[in-house]
């Protein structure tokens, strides 16, 4: 069981291209369809919780799936914890090894003209990739829809604009020392905590 679990998640990690969401489809296919370790309903619940708790979705899903799979197979809770850790490590093993190799290559060859050209283009493309990540997330799931839950939609929109303005507007000059106290530009963590609090108060 543990060996199969490890190998399955090793495979999932190695073949995930394109981040956490791509991984979810692979995990589902292996764990629900191929091995039938959990039911589809259980997997949906796991997915929802993975998205709500901190951390990368791919890792969260792997941890939770590993835990539930071992538990469902009739093992005890400590065994399930081992399964969860095993699944989480297996899923990052291959990508991390590859990343280390590529990082080493990049450090060595980054001054070659061809590599510099590639990096110059990639930097521009990555800006677009991040923009698309934000665009993809503009969904009724995240914002509420204007017709069915107008209140949520308006609050979400206001929060979106407020957070966006707060994190773009007060540009810090390059040589300026970081400001102190209340005047400091609010960091992403402050903004997240504040908007969570607002959600709690307003809904």
């Amino acid at each position: 069981m543990f060996l199969t679990l490890f190998l399955t998640f090793l495979k999932i990690g190695a073949f995930t291209f394109g981040g956490g969401y791509a991984m979810i489809a692979l995990i589902q296919n292996e764990v629900v369809v191929n091995h039938a370790w959990l039911t589809a309903q259980e997997f949906t619940d796991i997915l929802a919780i993975s998205q709500m708790t901190p951390g990368p979705i791919g890792i969260n899903t792997a941890t939770y799936t590993g835990y539930t799979a071992v538990l469902n197979a009739g093992y005890s809770v400590p065994c399930a914890v081992v399964g969860a850790v095993l699944a989480s490590l297996a899923v990052i093993l291959v990508p991390v090894t590859l990343m280390l190799l590529v990082s080493r290559l990049l450090a060595r060859y980054k001054d070659m003209p061809v590599v510099r050209m590639v990096l110059r283009l990639l930097r521009l493309v990555i800006v677009g990739v991040i923009a698309s990540a934000a665009l993809v997330l503009l969904t009724p799931d995240n914002f509420g829809s204007p017709d069915t839950n107008t209140r949520q939609f308006i609050i979400s929109l206001a929060l979106f604009v407020a957070v966006f303005v707060c994190s773009v507007w007060p540009k810090r000059q390059k040589d300026e020392a970081p400001q102190k106290g209340l005047l400091r530009r609010p960091g992403p963590i402050t903004l997240l905590l504040l908007s969570g609090l607002l959600g709690l108060v307003l809904y």
Binding site: M52, D141, N142, F143, F160, S195
Partner: peptide, 13 residues
């Protein structure tokens, strides 16, 4: 709490 956080995350990205 999460209804508040989700739009903020999109803005932060």
């Amino acid at each position: 709490i999460f209804m508040g956080i989700r739009p903020a995350v999109v803005a932060l990205i």
